[in-house]
Design a protein around this nucleic acid. Structure first.
Lengths: 245, 245
DNA sequence: CGAATTTTTGAACCAATTCAAGTTCGGTGG
DNA sequence: CCACCGAACTTGAATTGGTTCAAAAATTCG
């Protein structure tokens, strides 16, 4: 039952991926000191509780999602989090985390202390720049999701969601022979795109019958990405290399 | 026709407002050097064109909005921008501005060069921290708007929008005896909350008849903020002092 | 296997859209 | 000052995309 120790940051397996920029050994040493804890969560556990003061995290492995709820329980998923994503900045200007973060699969996260964030900027401005980069990047995702919820119809919304998630998983090297893990239930999809569960199901079946994606044993494949892109009217292209903290 | 010169950053009138944190004279001197141009725009002019590479801006006066459009013209307003708001970070991880920014009223903006941003982090980490703060704060707004578009009904959406805008205007000292400028047309509101123009109108009339807001001669007042908050299920409270760059 | 969760489908309903006119407002020019 | 014009707002009626309700089928898991 003794969990395997995570490697030191310098040997972080994420750093080997083509998706991420490299950092100097000094920077990585700083990150190592900045890191407070390596957290492991089961699927369904909360990484950040809505309204509570939260620390900062980098997703190390597995999937999670950020969400907000209304007081009667209606839930909106703001974005999904994959390895390398950084969470916790969102409450900088606000009193208590304005969102919750929940593990979608068993996952691990590197925890950093919020109080140390300022030292990061002071000692390694380059890492400060990276943090901004990550914050801005997360916002670009939410912008796109808002476009979906506000102006795309059901088919387009689901197509856009499948498109980004597949693209992101592929970029992280999580796909093998055209299929990637896809741990979302239809309820998650519904909450992410702002539709009811029933209509989400009907729309997904429709797209499935149109041959726009395949989903079997929790793995997703997109046989014709161009068709999916076109239906979703989704053209966002991300830069190949992003920072990792 | 010779426009009045803007004051140097050290005497920026925004800095006197209670909403903003103060900076050291050295920081302000850096900001002054960082500033490339003082832009004036008429209502309706574009500050950032969708898809084009954009510079960085702080809104100096007036109102603007960030938006995205689908290829058939459907438009989603992502957020409104008021004095002190910082735009342009959103395309850090992406190739070309993923949004447009348009002036809602006659407005002025301080333009900074994107290429200089790195120097800001290097020379004044504290300002780097502020930039992150502003990016994170903008994201918190978009998160809230996504919750609206995805999970609130028409009445709640409009109530939530009115609530934030009024609150933001008041925080900036833009309100006098309970009323603030309100330059949005119903089309802007519709595009911000993700409803059709017609339904936006009907819903606004309803809220108006319920006495939740008053709107006359382009000025908004909210006689009973608690009631509006309750209807919107909107509880976000922002910290009193935020950075200004 | 049995229980719980997730997916699927049909049917009734409703919130929001679309279509189609008015009406009111703000500005401009005679 | 008033007539006119375009933009913004308002309203009613028909329609529809999506929700809700209800129940069954499939899948997962202890």
């Amino acid at each position: 039952m003794n969990p395997v120790q995570p490697p030191p940051c310098l040997q972080c397996p994420l750093r080997d991926k083509a998706a991420f920029r490299s950092n100097s050994p000094q920077e990585i040493a700083f990150i190592q000191r900045f890191k407070r804890q390596h957290k492991r969560l089961e699927a369904g556990e909360a990484l950040v509780r809505e309204g509570a003061r939260s620390e900062l995290y980098t997703i190390y492995s597995g999937w999670a999602f950020r969400y907000k709820t209304l007081s009667d329980g209606r839930r909106q998923i703001l974005n999904f989090l994959l390895p390398g994503d950084f969470v916790g900045l969102q409450d900088l200007g606000i009193d208590g985390a304005p969102h919750g973060v929940e593990a979608l699969t068993a996952m691990e996260a590197c925890q950093f202390t919020r109080d140390e964030l300022w030292n990061l900027y002071r000692e390694h401005p380059s890492l400060g720049f990276d943090v901004t980069w990550l914050a801005a990047h997360e916002e670009a995702h939410v912008d796109e999701n808002l476009l979906s919820a506000g102006r795309r119809n059901a088919e387009e919304r689901i197509a856009a969601l499948m498109m980004t998630l597949f693209k992101r998983a592929v970029a992280l090297g999580l796909a093998h022979d055209g299929r990637c893990d896809f741990p979302l239930t239809q309820q998650h999809i519904a909450d992410a795109v702002g539709l009811s569960l029933v209509h989400t199901n009907k729309t997904m079946r429709k797209l499935y019958r149109m041959g726009l994606f395949e989903l079997a044993e929790g793995r997703l494949s997109v046989p014709n990405p161009q068709a999916l892109r076109r239906l979703a009217d989704y053209w966002l292209v991300e830069l190949p290399r992003r920072p990792l903290i």
